[in-house]
Amino acid sequence: MLETKEFPDEIDSSVKNILLMGATGYIGGALCRKLSQTQDFAVLALVRPRSDIEAIKPFCKEIIYSKEEQFSQEDVEEVIRKHDVKTVINLAWHMPPESTKEAQFEKDRIALEAALNAASAVSPDIHVIATSGNFSLVTADGGRITETPPHTGSRKLEYLAWIELLVNVNLMKDELIEEYISKGGNASIVYPSSVYGSSPTRGSIWDFAIQQFITGKPHEGYQPFPPDFITAWIHVEDLADCYIAAARKGSKGGHYLAAAENLSISQMATLFAQAAQVKFQAPIFENKNNVVFDDSYTREVLQLQWKYKAADDVKAWVERIKELGTYFLENV
């Protein structure tokens, strides 16, 4: 039997149970908090044996430890059956990155396959919501980017070579999910754009990536992003709302893009530097491929309105990074 920690007085037992994998991560922590504020969902968090659960304890109905370091189909299936789970959200991924896309995929696919296979084994009604990345949607043609996945073999923009491993691993996981859906599996994909803001657990990749871009120096072995890197940004709280809306929708084969604001790395770094009150001369930015992320379909289908704007909330983000001890701009 899986080891569990119950918190029965904190959440009404009449609400629907959601199984969340990756609950102690950056997005997972924010989603735990947001789910606990709903009237219709309660969180069952499946975590690894050595996970730090203190930050998510107030938001969970139960915290369940996996039997091994990696999640297994057996772990997920047991929770689904025992707790009458109808929705599984997988936010678990492998860190640190491996040296090749194949090695990274072999680690990243473990939790995803555990979720898909367990749901399939229990009932075709179990809805699995998987996470991807917006860069797996960008093709060499650039232009308007929506929730529609590119066709197999589509070439990627040259600047994406900087994060080729991440892009290719997301594509591999996307193909795995699409194959599952094509065979009758009940699954959806959420494509988060670059995520910023405060989470009750840890920080995100952008906590150091933006600071690194401002300094122009490598940090922890990573090179700064190129100036012409265009992306879209979503506040972690708005992204949590997207996952919750997708869970309520429950549509088989749903594809949802959360991309509230189109901003280059240079533009976001400028906002960050202003909030942090440090000197920064932004490189000249040119959107050479006319890349624009358009999530209007997702907002319409899921009836969402994004509540946050980077210009208004970046200061709170900077303060959170300082709290986490990952702020390193003092010497700029």
Rank of each mutant, 00 (worst) to 15 (best):
P218I: 01
D238G: 07
R299E: 11
A259R: 10
K34N: 08
L166M: 14
I11Q: 14
G250R: 06
P218H: 11
N331Q: 13
I177C: 06
G325S: 09
E106W: 01
T231R: 04
Y308M: 02
I110E: 08
T298Q: 05
A259Y: 09
K173M: 14
D141R: 13
T201F: 07
D207V: 02
S36I: 01
P49K: 06
S182C: 02
N170L: 10
E300Q: 15
T131P: 02
A119I: 03
Y180A: 01
A240S: 15
V76T: 12
K288C: 01
A316F: 12
R248Q: 11
H94N: 05
D108T: 02
E102S: 08
D141V: 00
D294F: 07
W206C: 00
A130R: 04
K279S: 14
R320I: 00
S72F: 02
A276C: 04
I126R: 08
M172A: 13
A30L: 02
D294H: 05
I181P: 04
W206S: 05
A316I: 03
I56W: 06
A316R: 11
K61H: 12
D108E: 08
S14I: 01
E330I: 00
D108W: 09
T326H: 15
K217V: 01
H94I: 00
D9Y: 12
Q104G: 02
A232N: 11
L257P: 04
A121L: 02
N262T: 06
L329T: 03
E179Q: 15
V292I: 12
Y327R: 05
L271D: 09
G325M: 05
V278T: 15
C32N: 05
V190Q: 06
I80F: 07
R109N: 07
L112H: 09
R155E: 15
N262W: 12
K34H: 11
V318D: 05
C242P: 00
A161N: 15
G29Y: 14
N331C: 01
G133N: 13
